[in-house]
Design a binder for these strands. Sequence first.
DNA 1: ACCTGAACACCGTTCAAGT
DNA 2: ACCTGAACACCGTTCAAGT
Lengths: 216, 216
Amino acid sequence: MTAKRPYHHGNLKPVLLRAAIRLIAEVGPAAFTMREVARRAGISHNAPYRHLQDKDALLAAVATEGFERLAKALSKPIMETHTAASATEARGVAEERPALRRFKASGLAYVRFALRSPEHLLVMFDWPLPLNRYPDLEAAAARAFSILVGLVQEAQREGSLPEGDAIVLARIAWSLVHGVAKLAIGKRLALESEAELMNSTTRALDILYVGMARWR
Amino acid sequence: MTAKRPYHHGNLKPVLLRAAIRLIAEVGPAAFTMREVARRAGISHNAPYRHLQDKDALLAAVATEGFERLAKALSKPIMETHTAASATEARGVAEERPALRRFKASGLAYVRFALRSPEHLLVMFDWPLPLNRYPDLEAAAARAFSILVGLVQEAQREGSLPEGDAIVLARIAWSLVHGVAKLAIGKRLALESEAELMNSTTRALDILYVGMARWR
DNA sequence: ACCTGAACACCGTTCAAGT
DNA sequence: ACCTGAACACCGTTCAAGT
């Protein structure tokens, strides 16, 4: 226990990232401290400053990683049972074309990502990081959003969504799933299980799609 | 400047609340400290503990006040120019009945509240307060949500929204406006002015309404 | 190159002592 | 009753000194 700590050599940064995420998950970002991160990484309290400018830089790295994972989750929208239970499907209406399915699935993927990585979402959106000081973070966030815009455009080409500014439609969809995700994480939706939340999200996305398709 | 501080007598709590909100608005909840609140209130750093159990209790009071103000904002949805520009209106379709107007207006009011009091919204939704330990807060939050549910029910009685669980519809609407509000506060929507945001929100609410009305 | 321990100016919270 | 100053165990960050 009083064993002398060996020097930690090699890439400390990923180790710090993992420790940071686990710590935020446990105590929340408010109680999150650099010294505790260092303790968990088994290094002295100021070693992180060799690799990161400061606490914000560590959180910016967490946020950047979060946007990269989100982008991956959004672009791999594998259809699941929840989506199969989608209303138009249930009625046997064969109008749900592939791009529209992917668009809706990405919405579900957003919420699922948020549930699995609430600590990431929190740092990504609710930690007041000066975005312009972290270009990597800004770029990762832009990439994630552009995937959603691309899905809207595909659905437009397919004829599932109306012509018009894809960015506007993407922002509305993003707002909906972001709201669902944030409220769900904060336990404000009074939904029991993840399955129930996914069903509810599917319904919300169906409503949004119907509204987008008919609205003029 | 070295003048001896007179004792502060009377109700310190409201003074602390005002100071707390101003401080959070300036530095964010992460950098928010009890000692600085006390400094701004012109009292010694530990005086607040005579009135509040701890830092969380002060933030819980801020959140409670926020929900009370939100409830007020939602129940006084005065129609404004943005809503008047709503699509159905623009086309002269006279189908927008009063309860539906109030429902949409409350959505706009939610976003407007968020823009005017971002610090309240942040504490209300993103500070990990153990809700069950602050019954006043929990009750205020429930009251605010119930107003939205009531608006949905009125719109259902009026025939503007389909029959069915009002709570489910209210949750979906809440998610949308909450997402818009959070993303707007975080400057993630790339919208220039408040007017632009209100127009965009109006469009989103129109889409949601159309989707709700037609979805089955 | 990378890490450490001591140091500084902070925090949240408590408590005996003052008015 | 209400407030204060000193105290304790923390934090973020820096820096000279070690391997």
